[in-house]
């Protein structure tokens, strides 16, 4: 079973080699003519003002939190979906309750305005 994943490891290594070799070839070929103006961050030609690592909209965190909840839900749903035929109606009703609770949570987040962008 674990030997099946030999290719996964090999693809991982070769993916890194693929990117690294492209960088090395380009490093050998490219010109080097750096100057301070060229190396300043691009802000449409204006002089750079301040740092870019600043506070940002709290909404991104809300979305991330809701995502975690629903991603775990999807993780529960996957094995359930595969063997639903064997498990029968009891499992279906159980999952129905589970999904109903989550839909309730989704409606709550909706009413609280988590999905409205300002």
């Amino acid at each position: 079973m674990i030997a099946d994943y030999g290719y996964v490891g090999l693809f991982f290594l070769f993916g890194i080699v693929f990117v690294a070799s492209a960088f090395i070839v380009s490093w050998l070929l490219r010109p080097r003519a750096a100057n301070p103006v060229k190396n300043s961050p691009y802000e449409c030609g204006e002089a750079v003002k301040g740092n870019s690592w600043i506070q940002f909209n709290v909404h991104y965190y809300l979305i991330a939190l809701i995502f975690v909840i629903f991603d775990v839900e999807v993780l529960f749903l996957t094995p359930w979906a595969i063997i639903l035929r064997e498990l029968g109606h009891v499992a279906y009703v159980e999952m129905l309750v589970f999904i109903a609770i989550l839909i309730f949570g989704l409606i709550y987040a909706w009413k609280k305005g988590a999905f409205d962008w300002q």
């Binding site: 991982f12 993916g15 890194i16 693929f18 990117v19 690294a20 492209a22 070839v25 380009s26 490093w27 070929l29 490219r30 010109p31 080097r32 003519a33 750096a34 301070p36 060229k38 190396n39 300043s40 961050p41 691009y42 740092n51």
Partner: peptide, 27 residues
Amino acid sequence: LLCKEDIVPVGVDKWVWWLAPFFVTVP
């Protein structure tokens, strides 16, 4: 693109900046 000059802007987070193309392409 192979023969283009590689511009590294001042103030980049070196490691994060250099590893990003790997993290995008390898997966």
